[in-house]
Each structure stands twice: as C-alpha cells, then as structure tokens.
Amino acid sequence: MYKILSEETDKSGMKVLNIDKSDLVELMEDYKNRRYYLSSITGVDMKDHIDVIYHIHNFDKNDYLCVKVSTSDEKVPSITKLWKAAIVDEREQYDLMGIVFEGHENLRRILLPDEWVGHPLRKDYDLNKVQYISMDRDGNEHVSFDDKEGW
C-alpha cells in the first residue's frame, strides 16, 4: 500500500499529493482504476534534486489532481505501462530535463537530435556552447561543436 507523505493545495486550487518515488506506480495504478488519465508530466530542476510533477485527470468527475515526486539521482519509475500518453511525455522530459524513466521501452530523445550533448532545461546547462546540426544523405542528424563539420 502506498503512503502519501503530505497533501496540499496549489495556487490554482488543485489538490497536490506528495509521495515517495517508490510508491509512484502503485498510486498511479490505483488512480487509473478510478478512471483517471494522464494529462502531463513536468520536470523541475531544483539544483540539488529534480521534482517530477504528474497531472492526472478524471473526465467523468472533471477532477484534476497533481502528484509530486522528487528524485536526487535523476531516476524515476516509468508509468508507460499504465497510460500510453506517458510514452511521449517521458521521452520529452528525458530529452530536455535528463530524467531517466526506468522501465520505458524506447527512451530516446524526441525533440533534439539523438547526438545532442546535455539537457537544455537543466539550470547548469551552458547556453553559450553552440551545437551545430547537419543531416547526411540518409536523413540522419549529426551534432558537432564545429560549425564546418558535416557541410
């Protein structure tokens, strides 16, 4: 049985459940059985840890709920087994925030090219380091720090 660490209400009046990440899949499965569906996944880099925020939604009762877990080692269990919507959401958060979802079958970058270095939404990401993308004849993208390479 999962344990809810604390319950609060955020500024928009939404109920927020803070839970430990080991309870995540169990809690989500319980809510899935109550006809909740995944709406979005957001990662927030808090420098010493990463907050992962799930918004789930029940269409019958029109009830929105926010589930928060925090992770210090960038790893969170995947919920793709419960909702297919998590496939693209988790890939996006992996791509931009660098959260590794354990158990995701196809965890690769979705918006940036596969070879990209770093995760842009991290607070320590260096914006001055420019990366150049080129495409070869087969349509595969290559990334380089040298603007002449590949052209």
Binding site: L96, I110, L111, L112, P113, P120, L121, Y125, L127
Partner: peptide
C-alpha cells in the same frame, strides 16, 4: 520524427 521547429520556448 518531430523537433524540426524546436526552439525550446520553455527555456
């Protein structure tokens, strides 16, 4: 494959 218009508006 998506991401050709990615500007990272969130950042």
């Amino acid at each position: 494959t998506i991401g050709y218009l990615h500007r990272n508006a969130e950042k």
